[in-house]
Design a protein around this nucleic acid. Sequence first.
DNA 1: GTCTATACGTTGATAGAC
DNA 2: GTCTATCAACGTATAGAC
Lengths: 219, 219
Amino acid sequence: MSLEVPAHSNHAGKPASRIRQKNEQAILRAAEDEFARHGYKGTSMNTIAASAGLPKANLHYYFTNKLGLYIAVLSNILELWDSTFNALTAEDDPAVALARYIRTKMEFSRRQPQASRIFAMEIISGGECLTEYFSQDYRAWFSGRAAVFQAWIDAGKMDPIDPVHLIFLLWGSTQHYADFATQICRVTGRTRLTRQDMEEAGTNLIHIILKGCGIKPAQ
Amino acid sequence: MSLEVPAHSNHAGKPASRIRQKNEQAILRAAEDEFARHGYKGTSMNTIAASAGLPKANLHYYFTNKLGLYIAVLSNILELWDSTFNALTAEDDPAVALARYIRTKMEFSRRQPQASRIFAMEIISGGECLTEYFSQDYRAWFSGRAAVFQAWIDAGKMDPIDPVHLIFLLWGSTQHYADFATQICRVTGRTRLTRQDMEEAGTNLIHIILKGCGIKPAQ
DNA sequence: GTCTATACGTTGATAGAC
DNA sequence: GTCTATCAACGTATAGAC
């Protein structure tokens, strides 16, 4: 369910040296920023190198090529991504669990908007780099997640809402605050979305979605 | 509130010839497809020309340069975009008007997903080409739209939900079905989203959002 | 109005000295 | 491991014949 990141010169067995770890981190961080702002094609190795404070040739020493670096960045993102969704279980109280999930997603949109944007651009562009990620395993995992909502429905804890569409509503509404932050700021006359803005947005989403699904507040 | 499209060789006064109209349309259509699939930087004039069935130099004859062509495409999209939102008025019954708006947006996501994707990528990339679009006028227009929801709240027709966040929920949840269609298909094992899929998604959104906002169904 | 040929910058990637 | 120099491919854009 995760991406195969092509190994380069770091041969198996040898532990990563301290300098290697430091440089790889710097490159990955710089790449994440640039890819989020300009997309895959719009980002040049030159820019990433400058942002990481290293000569361009070093990037090719640590990563096979541009695509390899991009896949590595994408892979890091996906790990964080899925883990939050696994916290939901059929035994949870829907009001508590859903509210917590929305808060977590909003927190993610606030603290790692670049990650959300890279994923969004990749999907919009056809998501060919995610083909192996969206494997049979992933669909099974997704079904399992949808089953949690179905269990809540069967237990009479919420309205009979198609779990699949509910999941897309949760993803779409929370990620919107990361991906479209620019529009939100321009339209509301802000320079950036503050922590408080995001918390208010989250409270709002929780109100509408929980009530909309017929979930009674936790006692 | 709209974009200034740089005029090129079509001097004012002269009506567009039939051949010019035909070619410009072909170029714009091809450009829309390519920009949606690969973003601004990821699209080459060469590809657009091939897709439009014209030699590359012709694009530069009809449009000043690549950016001019891109702005023209973007401009076409924005016109369609805003008009649907203007249909809402304070006198409307919220249940009817909101449901109709969600249907319209979903219809838009179904029929013109490329437009939605180009807009999304532009915003994610910082939206510098939309600076003049997001002018003072636009913010005034947006406030006016938010005021409609506030009027409904004041009239006791819906819960006191921040209109601004409600608008972002409407936009985010409906556009998600255009922008993330690839993910939705991969995850649910479809090859494409059918008309029926989109209608079910719309019905679902209407149920959750209307109930979530405390809007009673129209009698 | 149309299209071939080409100028010229930028890109990803590598060779090879250190 | 690091970095300068360089290459081939591709990008936008234009000149100029038709």
